[in-house]
Design a protein around this nucleic acid. Structure first.
Lengths: 195, 195
DNA sequence: TAGTTCACATACCTTGGGTATGTGAAACTC
DNA sequence: GAGTTTCACATACCCAAGGTATGTGAACTA
């Protein structure tokens, strides 16, 4: 194995093991040396690849964020109508929230560990941006009343974060159904009134 | 000063100083011994009154939660119409979110430090309960379509949490206004369509 | 093949949460 | 009011864990 391959492999392994543990135990209860040992290296390797425990966590967050963004985008892109895209994207986000990685890492620990500002910025780069884009399209198409899009996107983003956390806690399929229905009701309320 | 008075005074001082620092620096960066020293006691006193750093934080969270709940309830109780109560309560919550104590302690750190389940339970005991109650009233009055109230309350609660975080970061009064308008739009969308 | 790079390992430091125990003044008992 | 108990802390210590400084040997380069 070439040195570059070895390096990449170690980095990948640390990232994967870190992700597993951050999701299972939460940031605080993860011991960096244990992560390294589980991968067959020492703490020194972890510090060589990432800037300490926080750096590893940041890299994991970026990875999970990106995957989430892609999932949401794929679900939305399956539709042509912007309104259907919004609904599909939102439902995909809710479904993703049941993933324990997303739940614990992105929604619970990331804001506290990275600081809310940095978390916000990373979120903006992945899934939140899609939401603003679709809303902008809908406003321009006259489906949603003309208004600043950003505050609306924040509200919806927060609503979905919370719903995802709730769903992950309550495995009852009825809860998912109810949450999706409530979300649809909230979204439908945004449309211009037809009279 | 009697012993009971002394005890109460020390506890109050620790609680106040802890709250100050948790809000300013975040849970992780607060050193328990420093909190104690600032109050003129040692770490031992802090452990005597609370169960360690986490216990002090929990007590602070409970205090801030309660104050928030009271603020929201007071704002709502100024109105007789349930719909006005809902709006007033929501606006009061947004305003409270600008308070750095609420922002950092309740919204950012508490879920990660206490765990989401415990945080949820505490939130339920204070402000979230009011929201569910008003929504139930509105559903019964036919102002809001008949539906399970709990998921809706979660969605709104999440939306407002996020909006509050956003407002606290952006001191521009225009941002507040936009956020309130967007929230009103979201709430209005919940009403049954009159035709 | 000699020299350089670098992906780690090893050893050590330091901070800070937690604990076990001591102490002196207030409260209580007789 | 002297002795005893209680208790609100102080003191001293432990140790887990993050961070750092430095060593090392295999891979790369000239």
């Amino acid at each position: 194995m070439t040195r570059e391959e070895q390096r990449a492999a170690t980095r990948r392994a640390l990232l994967a093991e870190g992700r597993r543990r951050f999701a299972a135990d939460g940031y605080h209860d993860v011991v960096l040396a244990d992560v390294a040992r589980a991968v067959g290296v020492t703490k020194g390797a972890a510090y060589h690849h990432f800037e300490g425990k926080g750096g590893l966590f940041r890299a994991v967050v970026a990875q999970v964020q990106q995957e989430l963004g892609e999932r949401v985008a794929r679900a939305a892109d399956a539709h042509r109508d912007p309104w259907d895209q919004l609904r599909a994207g939102c439902h995909a986000f809710l479904a993703a929230g049941r993933d324990p990685d997303v739940r614990r890492i992105l929604l619970v620990d990331a804001p506290a560990v990275l600081g809310w500002d940095e978390w916000r910025a990373m979120d903006e780069d992945s899934s939140a941006r899609h939401l603003s884009e679709v809303l902008t399209t809908l406003v321009e198409a006259g489906v949603v009343p003309d208004q600043p899009v950003e505050p609306l996107a924040r509200l919806l983003s927060g609503a979905m974060n919370e719903a995802a956390l709730w769903l992950a806690r309550d495995p009852d399929p009825q809860a998912s159904e109810q949450a999706e229905r409530a979300l649809d009701g909230l979204l439908d309320g945004l449309r211009v009134r037809e009279r």
